[in-house]
């Protein structure tokens, strides 16, 4: 994950904005690792949390090009140490009678919840730090994972005791 950076992009809540952002990544040769979009408490704006692969291009070019989009209002680069990052996953895993109790035990260790139960499998919901979800996936794999759906991460800056260390990228120009 060292090659990945999380950007929190505040955009105007207008039709086609996601296309503009995604299209920009594609045509400038930037790679998106994950993407989550939802409205904010202010209905005029949405927040796109995008994890970018900075091996493809320097982060600086990505943020500068993003800034040029008229609908992009603000970009914060969220450093892992200075932000709260969470992701939600739904995992359908094999859980036949012989292994079911082990699966349930692990779900409890990870503070997940079983949200659906079938004859031979269960669907687990797990919310947590993306690394935790990676670990959970690893541990479930031997039982046989049928399906995984992750939301992509969302993030906000950590509330620090002193001033928040939220690096705002400056130089917004059209």
């Amino acid at each position: 994950m060292a090659k990945h950076h999380t950007l929190s992009v505040l955009v105007e809540n207008k039709a086609g904005v996601l296309t503009r952002v995604a299209g920009l990544f594609a045509r400038r040769g930037f790679n998106i690792y994950s993407l989550a979009v939802a409205p904010t408490d202010d209905e005029r704006f949405s927040r796109i949390t995008v994890v970018v692969d900075v091996e493809s291009k320097p982060l600086e070019q990505i943020t500068k090009q993003l800034f040029k989009l008229i609908n992009v209002v603000k970009i914060d680069e969220l450093a892992p140490q200075q932000s709260v990052e969470r992701e939600l996953a739904l995992v359908t895993v094999r859980a036949e009678s012989g292994t079911r109790s082990q699966v349930i035990e692990l779900v409890q260790v990870f503070e997940g919840r079983i949200v659906d139960v079938g004859h031979d499998e269960v669907t687990v919901m797990l919310a947590g730090h993306p690394d935790t979800i990676d670990d959970f996936e690893d541990l479930m794999r031997p039982f046989g994972i049928d399906d995984v759906q992750r939301t992509g991460r969302v993030a906000l800056p950590k509330l620090e005791r002193q001033a928040p260390r939220l690096r705002s990228v400056s130089g917004k120009v059209g």
Binding site: I70, K74, K172, V173
Partner: peptide, 8 residues
Amino acid sequence: DLPGYTPS
């Protein structure tokens, strides 16, 4: 009214 466009 373009909150995301403020060229300097």
